[in-house]
Design a protein around this nucleic acid. Structure first.
Lengths: 150, 150
DNA sequence: TATATAAAAGATAAAATACTCTTAAAGATT
DNA sequence: AATCTTTAAGAGTATTTTATCTTTTATATA
């Protein structure tokens, strides 16, 4: 599994927020119900995204979370790095610490290339790209597919 | 992390066996010492590779494990699949079950392409390719880099 | 000001993964 | 026969990940 569960949930929530394209705050309760993710768990994940500056939050009635900037200015890579860290885009496929061009493993050159391709795809794809695609083609972002884009 | 620790260890041991290029059996004890991996843990992992038909084993004195076929006939993909399963080359980046071209998620087409590239690299690279590279350039397959190719 | 709402924060629990250790059995070598 | 080494199964521990629960803090609105 490339991404952790936390990261998968974070991405799905971000895609939903991007599809709203409003500056209203959406409560985490609502998000968790729409996406069928545990409320408390999602809260933790979204706190990380808020701490990373990708989301803004507001307490109290009518509070919730929203994207901190336009969805076309947030890449999937930013979301992934905020939750899983930069490691997945930098680490050795054999798990050797400090593997790099100075002291590489046999698989380094082969893997670094592939890994950079993955990073590029995540870096050049925005939340808007994906939410637009999902909305236009009614694609699913929940296991049961019952999610309805607005 | 793309690969599990077990898989990283299995790959490293396979690379070492490939570098020996002999039909002698190598004891798991020796392998675990050379590669600095827990003997008991490595035993379990190599049993999986034996069960998958990638290694042959022999009990008793002078026993151990060896590759079941020439190292240029074993791909990295086979080793990975034997330990981590085929899922890493097939699963959805958002973790949605059954994600495919019939009922995709927004990231499906983007990810499927990248994922297939990863699979291709692992499928077209053999243990011989990597062990040869490691041996010729004295690259490391242990964290401390003290491993010596023979 | 009082109240309800909702995120933040922290503590705890459950599950999965990564290891370690032990025991017994069987095959191979000397 | 004695010894070496894998096979196999299982128990036990540690760490990380995933998930839940409770309390605190901030905010809107009546």
């Amino acid at each position: 599994m490339l991404l952790s569960k936390s990261c998968e949930y974070g991405l799905r929530a971000s895609l939903y927020l991007a599809s709203i394209s409003s500056d209203k705050y959406i409560s985490i309760k609502k998000l968790s119900e729409k996406l069928d993710i545990s409320f408390h768990f999602l809260t933790k994940i979204l706190q990380e995204l808020t701490a990373a500056g990708l989301l803004e939050s507001m307490k109290g009635p009518k509070g919730g979370v929203r994207l901190s900037k336009a969805s076309h200015k947030i890449s999937l890579q930013e979301v992934v790095v905020a939750i899983d860290g930069i490691e997945i885009f930098t680490e050795c496929v054999l798990g050797l610490p400090g593997c790099g061009s100075e002291k590489p493993c046999p698989m380094h050159s082969m893997w670094a290339e592939t890994r950079d391709d993955i990073e590029e795809v995540f870096r050049t794809t925005t939340l808007k790209d994906m939410s637009k695609k999902g909305k236009q083609n009614d694609l699913r972002i929940t296991p049961d597919g019952k999610f309805i884009w607005q």
